[in-house]
Design a protein around this nucleic acid. Structure first.
Lengths: 142, 142
DNA sequence: ATTACATGTTATGTTTTATCACATCATTTT
DNA sequence: AAAATGATGTGATAAAACATAACATGTAAT
């Protein structure tokens, strides 16, 4: 249950996302400008990306590297979304208008959230000890 | 394989960690000062926490709430570490000296890393769609 | 040749985080 | 009780990270 939490939760500042994806800040912001990703924002207006967002950016990068331009990527994502929910027609949003940012209600208390997170972390910890040599991610620190 | 990557990779700035754990920056830094967590640092000296670090902090918080003081938590962690590796005796580090920061070599190229990450994300995506209502994490954005 | 696309670069302002010093309040110790 | 210690809050100050915007540039489409 609820590993969804890990994928949709806004967690990463753009600097980390740059490293994780190999994209420049300019690129990431440009893709957002064209509605290909919609990271959340902090109160201070900083972008916060989720795992889903990173997933998306990696896909974009793949497609870019295969020569697809932004219009093409837009179509691909659009048709995919359409395939997932073939009920709601909705206008196809051909404009350059970025997707409206998600602003929703909070359903979990802070405590419930942390309890959930704690559980997730514990569970995750059970099966991935000592799989890789310590320090593989050294590039991400100094 | 290698979900280790997700747990040990330095990803989160202190602001996010504050929200995820409900601890104040002061507390987090204080715990680090006493060697209970050892977040990585960016080139610019900002702390970067991994999932493991957050896990650790949530444990610390639990113990604090149960009335355990820092010395106690130190012991608990120490004895746990000892239980995991009952070969290396090593002096018990009773001092207040923070644990030496991890500085290691990089074994994966940037590309390999991202490929790995991409794979992980894809795999993770397979089983956790639509488990929770969209927007449960709204508290983390504005 | 012009235009549009995608990205780099630079300038400038704001937010976030760092360290440090001092304050506070509860517990121990003397 | 007084003093010391432990754990955290608060404020000052500096630097890092990030925001937006404008302009530059190389490549592709018209």
């Amino acid at each position: 249950m609820s590993s969804h939490i890990r994928r949709s939760m806004p967690l990463f500042p753009i600097g980390i996302v740059m490293q994780l994806t190999g994209l420049s800040a300019r690129q990431i912001r440009y893709y957002e400008e064209h509605g290909l990703v919609s990271p959340a924002r902090t109160e201070g207006n900083r972008r916060l990306f989720s795992f889903n967002d990173i997933d998306r950016l990696l896909e974009i990068k793949d497609l870019i590297e295969q020569g697809v331009n932004l219009a093409g990527i837009k179509q691909i994502f659009a048709s995919r979304k359409q395939a997932e929910q073939p009920e709601q027609p909705k206008q196809p949003n051909k404009s350059n208008t970025p997707a409206t940012p998600k602003v929703v209600k909070q359903d979990l208390s802070e405590e419930e959230l942390r309890e959930l997170l704690r559980t997730e972390l514990m569970q995750a910890g059970r099966f991935n000890r000592a799989t890789l040599r310590q320090g593989d991610m050294a590039r991400f620190f100094h």
